[in-house]
Amino acid sequence: MAAFLEVENVHKAYFLNGKRIDVLRGVSVTIEKGELVSLIGASGSGKSTFLHVVGTLDAPAAGSLRFQGTSVFDLSDAEVAAFRNRTIGFVFQSHYLLPEFTALENVAMPALISRLDKKSSLNRARELLERVGLSHRAEHRPGELSGGESQRVALARALMLKPDLLLADEPTGNLDPATGEGIHALLREVNKDLGITAVVVTHNVELARSLPRQLRLTDGQVVSAA
């Protein structure tokens, strides 16, 4: 059986004032289903770029990405969009909630995008909000939520369509340790209870150590940090 997620020989460079910065130099890594992986590395080492490439948000120059045997880069734009919608859940450093919509609507948005029934989507979104402990904030807009609350809403949104893969980019980077620990606990819970594979990019060494598998990005290569 094909591996759950296979990243192979991914190259990516940025160009700054005519100078090329090689960020990813042939990154290859395999992640199995149900794993909870931490990715650490120095600032600017390309952790976020790696996560974006894996999440199909960014195009590499070369390399391949296979998800359960399917070569994701060979899909059409629309198929990739549907893949992101159904299979991947994102949690970013900053919450990136849509400011015009209430917390409830934000959580339900992935379901609306895949054109599921609005009513049942909102019901599921309400359950999810309850699960992250924010049912009393359902009708508030992101501007009225605190950082921790926003991040929990973002996590609920990422879980809306029960994705196979959860990609978290420094989800606790902007939060104080106590609130961050809450988010970590939720991540672990999600991984354990729902069996969702998760990759967490973090600066927090303690958190990284607490996760079952640890990866480190150095010199454009991913190595095991264990």
Partner: peptide, 16 residues
Amino acid sequence: RKEIAVLKALGVPDGG
């Protein structure tokens, strides 16, 4: 721009 990026990350195709 930010919202467009988020919507795309949530799986909205270009046509959307």
